[in-house]
Amino acid sequence: MSETPQTPALPGQADKSGSGGYITTKIEELVNWGRRNALWPMPFGTACCAIEMMATLSSRYDLARFGAEVIRFSPRQSDLMIVSGRISIKMMPVLIEIYNQMPEPKWCISMGACASSGGVFDTYTLIQGVDQFIPVDVYIPGCPPRPESLIDAVMLIRERIKRGERQTKLYDRTKHPLDFQPVNLVSDAVAGAPQLTGTRLSLPGKDAAQNG
């Protein structure tokens, strides 16, 4: 028996000519490839935009085509927050709390005019843009944006992940006071910690000027 039996080449074992079996890459790129193809969105849907977000996830537009259909209502299991809808001063502490509960790395889409800038509602109760208080990666214009716009935003997020960018790096989370305290609007603030949320700022004499 002069011929030795030919065993098929196992991936990564045989065939040192380099014609197959190997992919050389940086570990970071491999991880980012996984991340961008399996985004798990946390839908912070409050108002009209949430309905368009549902439409995006449903039959016709089907966000599942881009690997982002696993909607997680638990912030601990998600990496993309979609803030869709108006955020009031009663909801803002909840939003910050939920954002802080999401594990790193995380991305954030501010969907629609209200979440991005307050939209047409320039009133006493509405946050004029959530980007004042949480970092936002992609803004979507529109009132509400069409599902195509949301898909486009998800594609932009994928691009960012591919390049390894994210907004959160720019910020120091440890200085965020809500990281260390439960969101409790009523309780007195711990000594030395910044005052919490939503109470009236004293602006004596400005009330009349602001009126109208």
């Binding site: 409050t46 108002a47 009663k90 909801m91 909840v94 047409v120 009133t123 006493y124 109760t125 509405l126």
Partner: peptide, 25 residues
């Protein structure tokens, strides 16, 4: 009250046709 937007207050500062925009939201 988590989505309180102030429609009624805003209505006092917008005219009748402008409020149509607020009503559908």
């Amino acid at each position: 009250g988590f989505l309180h937007t102030g429609f009624e207050k805003l209505g006092e500062y917008r005219n009748y046709n402008q409020f149509v925009v607020i009503s559908d939201r």
